[in-house]
Design a protein around this nucleic acid. Structure first.
Length: 408
DNA sequence: ACTGTAATTACGTTCCCGTA
DNA sequence: TACGGGAACGTAATTACAGT
């Protein structure tokens, strides 16, 4: 650029231009010519220069506003960052405290772990007697030789000291579960005496649909292990050609433990799968889920009681309740995956939603009609085997209700 | 070297006018 | 009336210069 072209306007000239700019930042060509008349001090400035000055002035104002906006935003973000840093520090401290608390709780839980069951080696006399009593109890409760298969996903671990087992090799289906409940043994016994009470939330039963096959009538029944099944009473009309099942007496073994209780719960159901229509047999054979549901429901009930009763006690707090809930949920998930071969969300519940309910899920296959409820979109090997027969697939709890109704 | 600002450049939009 | 060309003007980016 020719250096002779570059000039710096005087302060007076700039002040005059600023006054005009404040009135009108974007003057027209006529207005620009007019202000040359109004301000003799601008007489030596070309109209084109005036135009350029206004262009640059608008540009500068825009840049300054943007700079101011960025400065303000930076201040806000700095304040927010400071606040988050403080919050992070607080949470880090909380994490440390909770980790220590978890460590203490695990140490406490480790004290309540029952002795190994493989043999009696390294057991004290009291432990050996207790172990023998448990074995005898389990045998009587199931009416069969004890040959349990531990369910994957429920192994003893650092954060759980309870296990779920399914009977292997005996008639029918049995399951057992043991775990610590923070209740006095007398209270546990009292709660378990009234079995119907912990089934109170599990008594809903509804026929969702019905259709006939060559082997007989198939009903789709939603149930939650209804109370009347236990008492023998029912207000549902019996459907002919349905199979029978027997409910064996359940058993509870309560072992005192430092003011709390280690509970062994067993349920045993003989569904007689050989009497089931062949097309449904695979489903009956998968009904280990039912027995497990019952035992887990009992244990959950006891824990709810313990949790409720201990909420006010100084040794209990919200963390404990959360820990118990987490353990129960992990066990339930693990069992479902182990027995059914798929997670809970693989089925769409017809009613109820799973964890605390004994829910039913079903899906129509091979173009068969269904009950009108949402069909589940995935299944397991048992469901697939059943589907080959061209009927509805369902979880075991549904089929138990079918068999119970025919028992009357 | 850095900053502020005048001047330049590139490009897009709007308006006006002539023409088919 | 539609269309194209040109003038005027705008913005954004860049360059160049003078003062500190």
């Amino acid at each position: 650029m020719d250096s002779g072209k570059y000039v710096r306007y005087t302060n007076e000239q700039v002040e005059a231009l600023e006054r005009v700019y404040n009135e009108c930042p974007k003057p027209s060509s006529a207005r620009r010519s007019q202000l040359l008349q109004e301000y003799p001090i601008l007489a030596n400035i070309e109209p084109k220069q005036i135009k350029v000055w206004f262009q640059n002035r608008r540009c500068r104002e825009k840049q300054r506003k943007e700079a101011t906006r960025l400065i303000n935003m930076n201040a806000k973000l700095s304040a927010l960052n400071k606040m988050l840093m403080e919050e992070n520090e607080r949470l880090m401290k909380q994490t440390t405290e909770l980790s220590m608390e978890v460590h203490v709780l695990r140490q406490e839980l480790a004290k309540y772990r029952p002795p190994p069951q493989s043999n009696g080696e390294n057991l004290g006399l009291g432990d050996q007697m207790a172990s023998d009593m448990v074995g005898e109890f389990l045998g009587k409760a199931t009416g069969t030789a004890v040959d349990w298969a531990n369910m994957p996903g429920t192994k003893n671990g650092p954060d759980t000291f309870e296990m779920v087992f399914i009977l292997r090799g005996g008639p029918g289906i049995a399951s057992r579960v043991y775990g610590l409940v923070l209740m006095e043994p007398a209270k546990v016994a009292s709660a378990l005496k009234d079995r119907s009470q912990w089934l109170r939330e599990c008594r809903k039963s509804e026929v969702l649909g019905e259709f006939r096959t060559d082997q007989g009538t198939v009903e789709v029944v939603y149930t939650q292990i209804c109370e009347r099944s236990m008492s023998g009473g029912t207000n549902l009309e019996p459907v002919p050609a349905f199979v029978r099942a027997e409910m064996h007496p359940s058993g509870y073994y309560i072992k005192p433990c430092n003011g709390n209780s280690i509970i062994y719960i067993v349920d045993h159901v003989d569904l007689k799968p050989l009497s089931v229509p062949e097309v449904l047999r695979p489903l009956y054979e998968s009904s280990a889920a039912l027995a497990q549901r019952q035992t887990m429901e009992a244990l959950r009930y006891l824990r709810r009681l313990a949790s409720d009763s201990n909420l006010d006690s100084p040794r209990s707090n919200g963390h404990q309740a959360l820990a118990w809930r987490g353990i129960a949920e992990r066990i339930a998930r693990g069992f479902n995956e182990a027995v059914n071969g798929f997670p809970d969300d693989g089925w769409v519940p017809l009613m109820g939603d799973g964890m605390d309910d004994v829910s039913v899920a079903a899906r129509p296959l091979n173009g068969q009609r269904h009950s009108g409820s949402n069909p589940a979109m995935s299944g397991n090997s048992e469901a697939l085997r059943a589907s080959e027969g061209g009927v509805l697939c369902a979880k075991a709890s549904m089929l138990l209700q079918v068999s119970k109704r025919s028992k009357k």
